[in-house]
Design a protein around this nucleic acid. Structure first.
Lengths: 101, 101
DNA sequence: CTTAGATATTTATATATTTGTATAAATTGT
DNA sequence: ACAATTTATACAAATATATAAATATCTAAG
C-alpha cells in the first residue's frame, strides 16, 4: 500500500479523524484509554472532572470518527480504542507536546 | 518521562499541534514533505494545485504550531519538518485513513 | 531606486465548534 | 409500573476556523 499519495477522500478522512482527536479533553480521554483500557462515560466524567454531558459529547465525537468504539453492558457503555494503531499516534503527539511545552 | 499524565498545558499544546495538522490540504502538504524533503511555497502551491496565498497560509499555520520550520534562501523560503517524529504521526494517520475509506 | 519574483498578511463572509444547562432516553432493581 | 442510574441529545451564546480575493512585504538583480 502506498501511503504517500492519498486520494482526496483519504485526505479528508485523515483530517476528520485527526480533528476529532484535536482537543485537550479528547486527548486526555485517549490517554486515559491507552493500552486497551475500557471505561464508562461516568468513569471518564469523574476521572477528568468534566460535566457528564461534556464527557458523552466528546466520546460521541471520537466514536463518530472511528477513533473509539462504544459497547453497552447493562446500564453502562464502555468506550475503547477501535484500532491499536492509534496508541502510536497518541504516544507520538504526547511526546511532541512534552518536548515543547 | 511519563507520557500518560499530561499537564493541561501539554494537553493544549498537543491539541493545537494536532489541530494544525487536521486539514486535508495540510495533510497533503505534510505527505509531500515526508522523509526530510524541503519545498518552497511555490513548489507546494504548484504541486498541490492551490492558490499561492492558500499555500502560504497553510504553511504559516504549520510553522506557527511547531510542525514545520521555514528557512529563507534568497527569494525562496524552504519549509520542512521540525521533528522527525512527526513522520510517524503522518504515516499513522494516513494508514488509518486508507484502512477506512 | 526600480522592477520582478516570491512570500505573507489582511479583510470579509460563511461555517463550525465549544460549553453549560436542561432534558430525554435506556436499563436495572424494587 | 416506578424509581434510580447511566447515557445521549437539544439548545443557545460565545468563540474559533475556513475560504477567497486583494494587497502588502521581502529579496535579488539591474
Amino acid at each position: 500500500m502506498k501511503i504517500n499519495d492519498l486520494t482526496i477522500e483519504q485526505l479528508e478522512k485523515a483530517a476528520s479523524m485527526l480533528k476529532a482527536i484535536s482537543h485537550p479533553v479528547r486527548i486526555a480521554i485517549l490517554n486515559h484509554l491507552e493500552n486497551g483500557k475500557k471505561s464508562t462515560v461516568t468513569e471518564i466524567h469523574e476521572a477528568l472532572g468534566i460535566e457528564q454531558s461534556a464527557a458523552s459529547h466528546h466520546l460521541g465525537i471520537l466514536r463518530n470518527n472511528d477513533i473509539l468504539v462504544a459497547k453497552r453492558d447493562g446500564k453502562n457503555t464502555y468506550y475503547f480504542y477501535k484500532h491499536d494503531r492509534l496508541n502510536v499516534l497518541i504516544d507520538c503527539i504526547s511526546k511532541c507536546a512534552c518536548e515543547k511545552v
